[in-house]
């Protein structure tokens, strides 16, 4: 029994650390697609936000500010950079009515190349060390709650708690406000929305920019939680978040379930040798790693006939076609 608890105490913080950024970035994808713009640039936005955020944090470490304050600044910077970078996607897909896949592909290629290029010029290497350990060892008082204390309040990250708050706020915004309704309307039937006086272009910009903020912040969280340095990549995490969104059928609750599931698989892939039972199965980690993508494909193959994807996602809005 105590072995089980040891394993859980070890695994659950890791799963939470994966689940929070996964669901945040997937939620980013949701905002964009619900407004009618497909955003496969999540990966690139994460890299861009992560890069600038981490560089700034690296610089601030020497200033003597408390580490958690620095991480807050880094997260905000990531979000702001994400908005700026996503604006390029919004400009191409909304204003210029371009092919959204092509524009997003360009952003996915641009971000790692630019970040490595700049890092190598200024730091002489493509690796940027974090220069600090941002883990919160234990939250006072809360960590002493029996059983769940160690799961949720030990070796945690500030970004985890912040991420949960942002997730709740974002969902409330999307489902309980007028603006949120307009975003969803623009992804389903932009013509109808337009006929009721909604500016489809503005709303789609909003959707893509929110998506950028969430993905950019997700990029910083990724580096803080899973790496000790930034290497110009988020290792496909943005695409995994895309799979989370699809597997979650473009719904927040679905995203949470999918993120929990994929996060668990991801942790198992990296740490199965430390899990009794799985260790003896000795299934190679690559099998676990490819599982989320295969499952998403299977779901797509069997659910595509009644897919919940926003109906107008991917089509540039043309008022002339009303």
């Amino acid at each position: 029994m105590s072995e089980l608890f040891d394993t859980l105490n070890f695994l659950i913080p890791l799963i939470i650390a994966s689940m929070v950024p996964l669901s945040l970035v997937a939620l980013g994808g949701l905002f964009s697609e619900r407004s009618g713009v497909i955003n496969i640039a999540l990966e690139g936005i994460m890299v861009m936000g992560g890069f600038v955020g981490i560089v700034l944090m690296r610089v601030l470490v020497d200033s003597g500010l408390p580490l958690q304050v620095i991480s807050l600044i880094g997260l905000l910077t990531g979000a702001i950079v994400g908005v700026g970078y996503a604006a390029l996607h919004a400009f191409a897909s909304v204003t210029m009515k371009s092919n959204q896949i092509i524009s997003a592909t360009a952003l996915n290629l641009f971000a790692p190349a630019l970040s490595v290029f700049i890092a190598r010029i200024f730091f002489g290497t493509s690796n940027i060390n974090l220069g600090g350990n941002y883990t919160i060892n234990e939250v006072p008082l809360l960590s002493s709650i029996p059983i769940i204390g160690p799961w949720f309040f030990e070796s945690a990250y500030l970004s985890t708690y912040l991420g949960i708050v942002i997730f709740i706020v974002a969902i409330t915004f999307l489902y309980k406000t007028k603006l949120g309704l307009r975003i969803r309307a623009c992804g389903e039937n932009p013509q109808a929305a337009d006929s009721l006086g909604v500016n489809v272009y503005k709303i789609r910009y909003l959707g893509v920019l929110i998506s950028g903020a969430l993905a950019g912040m997700g990029g910083v969280i990724f580096v803080l939680s899973f790496a000790t340095r930034f290497q110009g990549t988020v290792a496909g995490f943005g695409f995994l978040a895309l799979a989370v969104m699809i597997f979650g059928q473009w719904k927040p609750r679905g995203i949470l379930m999918a993120a929990l599931f994929f996060a668990t698989v991801r942790v198992i892939a990296n740490a199965y040798t430390a899990i009794p039972g799985l260790r003896d199965l000795s299934i190679p980690s690559e099998i676990y790693s490819m599982l989320p993508y295969i499952i998403t494909l299977v779901v797509l193959a069997f659910a595509s006939k009644n897919s919940r994807a926003p109906k107008a996602a991917g089509e540039p809005y043309d008022a002339g076609k009303r």
Partner: peptide
Amino acid sequence: RNVNEVVASIMLNYVAMYF
């Protein structure tokens, strides 16, 4: 199955990489 080829290909890219 009318699955969008872009989404399917993205998933298959990662499957191929891990494979």
